[in-house]
Design a binder for these strands. Structure first.
Length: 561
RNA sequence: UGGGGUGUAGCCAAGCGGUAAGGCAACGGACUCUGACUCCGUCAUGCGUAGGUUCGAAUCCUACCACCCCAGCCA
């Protein structure tokens, strides 16, 4: 694998190490909130945090940012851990939860109160909003802002003891209601929520807010560089304020970078959850989802995703990456590592009329054109074969080099055949093709003519039946998220096409779930993680092969109107 | 019209005062028993705009423009 590319964060870290900041240590963390599944955007952050630590001989923690029990649950915690491991990263024994620090957080809050840096506020959320002011007008001080320390302490303890209802009181930092930065206008530190927490059960009915929790958690874990996305930039002064007031021994450095956006998809947990809840997809791991679980099921490899994350870089510029880049990383990895096989997706039977009925030839084909170590497989050749319906055309477009009436084509790894007769049923539908073969063409070029086309095939008698699920992008529009629009309008009605009765070459028997193959001339496929069995194979299309012919044909059709 | 950010090709992105890397896409070609892979070539007198400083500016200065984020007791 190539070396991890440098970026502006690595530059900062190199400088920090040179200046012996944080004693020259590098310690990062990946801090997911367990309120949904991880998606490709998170992969960017995971890769950044873990590889940054690796690059500088440091460590990376996993820490669940679980301060909002209303939205979080333990199922998400498990899924997140599994996804990160699958991606190829390991946090060893450094698995933390913000909720692990609730006691400490509470003590520090009392300290803040004692120091006159925080107060208990009785404003309702609605009133607080009014007092906060607007982007252009300063806020007003809460009537409780000058409440005596002893009283604040008592009220805060009563909040903790469960004496009040949700929203009745909050603990606020005493900073500056005039600040042009809204985050500094006496932000809420603790709120009352009578809610069972997936980690702490019913121990607490007050929960700390992100801004208060995150910086302290970082400091307690000895994090040196706290990497987060751009929208937290305005929170940095608050991050620093909290740590400065508390005088904790370490003061991590928050550095923001741009989150990942990819065209033709949505990338917010809210919208992804909606797709799941509205039944527009089969679940968080639907192969069309940009979730890591979905991509895994689709057949993506961890290294393709990691390579992609390296390729897109890390900057502070908002951007939208072309999904073609992701697919490029995918094909690049799959091409190298996937064994080849033949599978006929839309079977059309052909009979080699001049081939004996009882004859079977066992052909040996390499599993990979460039990697002989992957070995060979055996493929039976007989009189009756399936080819793909799309590989035969009675009225071929210009440039068509597959099978046509009276024309020749190479059967991959076998003979050159000629289509002698098209057989139809009473409705005029083609039912089979009668062909002849040139016995001298196995492993040899035909004499005196050129045969350009090569098509794949499977012996009728030996074929394995399979279900193949053809996936395409979930959205038709480059930016389904566009402002003022509803992404539902852009859902691609043809994002899933299920093909039954597909024919696999017999070497594919006993396929295991998650096995990946390139079906020659079609694309990369994976045996479905959940639905596939050796008895009833189910394959998912991961990504098609690049198809310059198909593209050129599309353009021809567009021109023709 | 407050504050914080960002502008380099269709997309991503190097560049850090010495004369615009690389990748994706696209296009043209070579090779090919996968219309794949691979290989070769083309693709920014130009770096949001306008001025200025300098022998020299994408890099420094000034002004302007565009876009993104912030008014949750979400993260």
């Amino acid at each position: 694998m190539s070396e991890t590319p440098s970026n502006f964060i690595h530059q900062i870290i190199r400088e920090d190490i040179k200046n012996n900041k944080h004693e020259g240590r590098v310690h990062t963390r990946f801090p997911p909130e367990p309120n949904g599944y991880l998606h490709i955007g998170h992969a960017k952050s995971i890769c950044l945090n873990f590889t940054t630590a690796q690059t500088f001989d440091g460590l990376c923690n996993l820490r669940f940012d679980d301060t909002n029990p209303e939205k979080e649950n333990a199922e998400y915690v498990e899924a997140i851990k599994e996804n990160i491991h699958w991606l190829g990263f390991d946090w060893e024994d450094r698995e933390f939860f913000a909720s692990l620090y609730f006691d400490r957080l509470y003590e520090l809050a009392e300290k803040l109160i004692e120091d006159g840096k925080a107060y208990v506020c009785s404003l309702s959320p609605e009133q607080a909003r009014e007092y906060r002011g607007t982007l252009t007008e300063p806020g007003k001080n809460s009537p409780d802002r000058e409440r005596p320390v002893a009283e604040n302490l008592e009220l805060f303890r009563r909040m903790k003891a469960g004496e009040f209802g949700d929203g009745e009181y909050s603990l606020r930092a005493k900073i500056d209601m005039d600040s042009p930065n809204m985050n500094m206008r006496d932000p809420v530190l603790y709120r009352i929520r009578h809610q069972t927490h997936h980690q702490t059960g019913d121990k607490w009915c007050i929960y700390p807010m992100y801004d208060y929790t995150h910086c302290i958690s970082d400091a307690l874990e000895g994090i040196t560089h706290s990497l987060c996305s751009l929208e937290f930039e305005d929170h940095r002064p608050l991050y620093d304020w909290v740590l400065d007031q508390l005088g904790l021994p370490s003061h991590p450095q928050q550095i923001e970078f741009a989150r990942l956006n990819i065209n033709y998809t949505v990338m917010s947990k809210r919208k992804l959850r909606q797709l799941v809840e509205e039944g527009l997809v089969s679940g968080w791991d639907d192969p069309r989802m940009p979730t890591l679980a979905g991509m895994r099921r689709r057949g993506y490899t961890p290294s393709a995703i990691r390579n992609f994350c390296d390729a897109i870089g890390v900057t502070r510029t908002n951007s939208v990456v072309d999904v073609a880049m992701l697919e490029h990383a995918l094909r690049e990895d799959l091409d190298q590592h996937s064994p080849r096989a033949m599978a006929v997706l839309r079977p059309l039977k052909i009979v080699i009329t001049d081939y004996p009925e009882d004859k079977i030839e066992s052909l040996r084909l390499p599993c990979h054109p460039k990697n002989p170590e992957m070995g060979e497989r055996e493929i039976p050749f007989r009189r009756e074969l399936y080819i793909d319906r799309n590989d035969f055309e009675e009225v071929p477009p210009p440039g068509f080099k597959r099978l046509i009436s009276g024309g020749e084509v190479r059967l991959r790894g076998a003979y050159v055949i000629k289509c002698e007769e098209v057989i139809r049923d009473s409705r005029g539908e083609i039912t089979e093709l009668h062909c002849t073969h040139d016995a001298a063409t196995i492993g040899a070029k035909p004499e005196g003519r050129k045969v350009k086309g090569v098509i794949h095939w499977v012996s009728v008698a030996d074929a394995i039946d399979a279900e193949v699920r053809l996936y395409d992008r979930l959205f038709n529009d480059e930016n389904p998220d566009r402002a003022g629009g509803d992404y539902h309008d852009f859902i691609n009605p043809e994002s899933l096409q299920v093909l039954k009765g597909c024919k696999l070459e017999p070497s594919l028997q006993n396929l295991e779930a998650e096995a990946r193959y390139q079906f020659e001339r079609e694309g990369y496929f994976v045996a479905d993680r959940h639905d596939h069995t050796a008895e009833k194979p189910v394959l998912n299309l991961t990504v098609t092969l690049r198809d310059t012919w198909g593209k050129s044909q599309q353009k021809v059709q567009q021109k023709a109107g």
